[in-house]
């Protein structure tokens, strides 16, 4: 779908702006992948775990996991617990 949009508007790949939610907050992003989103949000090198639309996305898959409009992204880290 993204390729069709890109192809219709320009000859070179552009970063489409999409609306997603990150940890419950709706925001726009131009990141194409989860890895790019984490980088844009300054999480590079930070130990977090991720899920999109209630499904776990392992760290090894972040660079290939394409973001889609409406995705619900969860970015979590270690906390105190009982």
């Amino acid at each position: 779908m993204e390729e069709q949009v890109d192809g219709a508007t320009t000859s070179k790949p552009t970063h489409t702006t999409i609306e997603i939610s990150v940890n419950g907050t709706v925001q726009t992003t131009q990141a194409a992948t989860l890895a790019a989103l984490l980088s844009d949000l300054d999480y590079t090198g930070v130990r977090v775990a991720t899920a999109i639309n209630d499904e776990f996305v392992p760290a090894s898959s972040r660079s290939t996991h394409q973001l889609s409009p409406g995705d619900r992204v969860e970015i979590v880290s270690a906390r105190q617990g009982g």
């Binding site: 880290s77 270690a78 105190q80």
Partner: peptide, 22 residues
């Protein structure tokens, strides 16, 4: 010890500090 995970709000600093302590 039991721990949990929660949404990261401070660019990983809260989680990283806690993990280091644990």
């Amino acid at each position: 010890v039991t721990v949990s995970l929660r949404r990261e709000t401070a660019r990983g600093k809260i989680g990283a500090r806690f993990l280091e302590l644990i």
